[in-house]
Amino acid sequence: MPTYSLVNYKMLAIALAKEEIFAKRGSMICYTGKINFTRSYLAGGGVQNLAMREVTNEELIVMRARGTGKICYGYDGKYVTIIPLRGEMLYIETDSVLAYDSRLQTGTIFQGNQGGVQGIIKGVASGQGLFTTTFSGSGEVAIISQGDAIALEVTQKEPIFVDPNAYLGHKGMLTTQFVTDVNWKTLIGQTSGESYQFKFTGQGTVYIQAYEREKKP
């Protein structure tokens, strides 16, 4: 079983004993021992994934490291957080996934209001939605964020609204919905593209970073 530990707040160490691990491309900092790196793809197959691969392409490439030794990972000065999973489903914004291993089942979904492949492409084009990687099973996932990842609790009593550009991920029994706040829209203006919010209702945890990702052109 690969073991995960934090060297410091920006560096992750993973020890492998004839095992393999998947990590964000370009995140390997150093290693000792005998380890081989090959390219791989995030998430399983399927028609939907093919469509997604078309619209996201690069983001889904990960590097598989296999062998025996110790590898350190870090990415662009971002903070690293290890999230342990015990059977629940974790959703992480694809760009923020740093490392995971094959103990977890992965998938890619598009979180938006439109359905189907066409809806995905439309959603991506308009910026109304997010590509999210799902993890389920028991194990660890390492994620990266600008500044530390902040966990906000959601309870039945109080839904929470999140700027999609600051969203990292979530877990628990949560319903997600994209809402357009007219008030918000007039305030921010067209230029920033910040015309919608992510609404979470139910019981669970939402992870955000204190940073708003810039929109892809």
């Binding site: 920006k10 900092i29 150093c30």
Partner: peptide, 18 residues
Amino acid sequence: SNGPVVFLEAPAKVDPDA
């Protein structure tokens, strides 16, 4: 440095950027 400095005993292989 970008992030705290980590000291590593050789032999090891390191990303030139890091």
